[in-house]
């Protein structure tokens, strides 16, 4: 009787591969803590400062609401313009990058452009645009257009590559031209997903439009950064609350849009 259990394989076998990964991770953490001078003393000291900072943030100071409002409006404008332009451009780039729609001599370079837009963080792109078009909202708009292209043009292209070609063939059999094929066989299949990506991009542009101001590209980020530099932490708290409220409102709106287009 005792032998039965030994023949059977243990269902909860030890996974040595995963354990060794965890061991490596622990070694790495210990090593980097040493290499980067992260000591508990400094972290502890920080907690005191954190209490101090929180004390100065509360209560949030909304007395300079006109400044806050103008930054907020500018952020919103940047987000709206860049999302709409970005989505519009991405529609075409996505189509050109789809390998089942276009020959490879068109799709490969377009894919390269999209990948290039994706590689750099929006803030770095913002720096370059601030240099070339000066401080202000225009740099923010151009930055977020590039960021939008990098993200949704890629997703558009992937969505188009996954469509069923039967409908395309059926429309083509009626003698339809290229535009009609796109409009009546490709678009109906991918439109709902496009809306999903687009609303997601609107959300993320809203988030980023509150950040590009840190390098001078307009919007609420600039207000936030100067408030930080002047140690107006109560105003910082007010701005952060407004940003979080704005983003939650944006998510609420995009949920409604998504429901309409389902």
């Amino acid at each position: 009787m005792a032998g039965i259990n030994k023949d059977r394989e243990n269902p909860f076998k030890h996974n040595w591969f995963v354990s060794s990964i965890w061991l490596l991770v622990v070694c790495y953490v210990l090593y980097t803590f040493n290499a980067m001078d992260l000591s508990w003393g400094r972290i502890n000291e920080g907690f005191g400062h954190a209490g101090n900072l929180l004390g100065r943030m509360i209560p949030p100071n909304f007395s300079r609401w006109s400044l806050l409002l103008s930054g907020l409006v500018e952020s919103l404008e940047i987000a709206v313009i860049s999302s709409i332009c970005g989505i519009f451009i991405s529609l075409f780039l996505g189509l050109f990058a789809a390998r089942n729609m276009m020959p490879s001599w068109i799709s490969s370079p377009v894919r390269g452009v999209i990948a290039l837009c994706r590689t750099f963080h929006p803030v770095i792109i913002a720096i370059l645009f601030v240099k070339s078009v000066g401080f202000g909202a225009l740099a923010g708009i151009l930055t977020l257009i590039v960021a939008s292209i990098g993200f949704i043009a890629k997703l558009f292209a992937e969505a188009i590559e996954e469509i069923s070609l039967k409908q395309v063939e059926a429309i083509r059999a009626t003698g339809a031209g290229f535009t009609s094929i796109i409009l009546f066989s490709v678009m109906p299949q991918v439109f709902a997903r496009f809306i999903g990506f687009s609303t997601y991009q609107l959300d993320s542009n809203l988030r980023n439009s509150t950040m590009v101001g840190i390098v001078g590209a307009g919007g609420l980020g600039g207000t936030l950064f100067s408030a930080f530099q002047r140690f107006d932490y109560d105003f910082v708290a007010a701005i952060l609350i407004i940003i979080i409220a704005l983003i939650m409102f944006g998510e609420f709106l995009s949920n409604i849009v998504r429901r309409i287009f389902r």
Binding site: V123, R207, T210, M211, I214, F225, F231, I243, I247
Partner: peptide, 13 residues
């Protein structure tokens, strides 16, 4: 909701 740059500003202070 809070961007990583904004988190960084907070933690730098």
């Amino acid at each position: 909701s809070v961007n990583s740059l904004v988190w960084a500003l907070l933690f730098v202070s």
